[in-house]
Write a protein that binds this DNA or RNA. Structure first.
Length: 218
DNA sequence: AACTCGGGGCA
DNA sequence: TGCCCAGAGTT
């Protein structure tokens, strides 16, 4: 039986081996672009988001331009990302709020970011970590699932998982671990199930695991 | 904490 | 078709 901290150390080593260098999946450093990309990312793969973003930025790369572009045009541009109605309205309202409340700038605090319409804790964390370089550990349902499978948390909520992961990894590793976990889950241990042949952890899974995970069919 | 929303892509 | 995808708002 291993402790949670021991499992975290093993997981960290394994993640570094699997993904020694990690790049940002959404390569937008500009805060506003990243904010838009984050909104589009809901229930949507990042490859699809990356395909759509250049077209959006071409027509509107600032809140003022986005407001002027209008909801209907935004909806056309982001159609292939799914949930286009909601996201178009969200992006439009978000841009209006940025203009009215922050002079067209993206605020640099958690509180202000989370207070924006259409921006929740996870999106705020992404912007804080990747646009502003502040310590944040974005945890979504995928990382939550992985942390549960690896015995890094007992919690049922993503909020508890975020607390546990922040506790298990030093602050300067948060962004790297976040990215590695995203990539790892996608490659080996997704919602469909864990491929025990290629996932070094789930193959033997940590002691304490109740039952084997459904393997992805080849 | 649980529920609702709800669309494109892929097997 | 059924299932999955870098969630947010409301109650």
């Amino acid at each position: 039986m291993s402790t949670r901290r021991e499992r975290a150390i093993i997981a960290g080593r394994m993640l570094d081996e699997a993904f020694p260098e990690v790049g940002l999946p959404l390569d937008f450093r500009d805060p506003y672009s990243l904010l838009i990309a984050t909104v589009l990312s809901a229930q949507c793969t990042d490859t699809r988001v990356n395909k759509v973003m250049p077209g959006v930025l071409c027509e509107a790369s600032t809140p003022a331009q986005m407001v002027r572009l209008g909801e209907d045009r935004i909806r056309e541009l982001i159609r292939t990302c799914g949930l286009a109605n909601r996201k178009a309205r969200s992006i439009h309202r978000l841009s209006q709020t940025l203009l009215k409340r922050h002079g067209g700038e993206v605020p640099r605090t958690f509180e202000a970011l989370e207070a924006l319409p259409g921006i929740g804790h996870k999106s705020a964390s992404v912007v804080m970590a990747m646009a502003f370089g502040e310590p944040a550990f974005p945890v979504d349902t995928h990382i939550h699932r992985l942390a549960q499978r690896w015995g890094l948390t007992d919690g049922r909520s993503v909020e508890q998982t975020e607390k546990d992961l922040k506790n298990l990894f030093p602050r300067e590793e948060w962004l790297r671990r976040h990215l590695q976990l995203i990539y790892y889950g996608r490659a080996y241990c997704s919602a469909r199930g864990c491929d025990g042949r290629t996932c070094p952890i789930c193959r033997s899974c940590f002691p304490g695991r109740k039952k084997p995970f459904r393997a992805r069919k080849a």
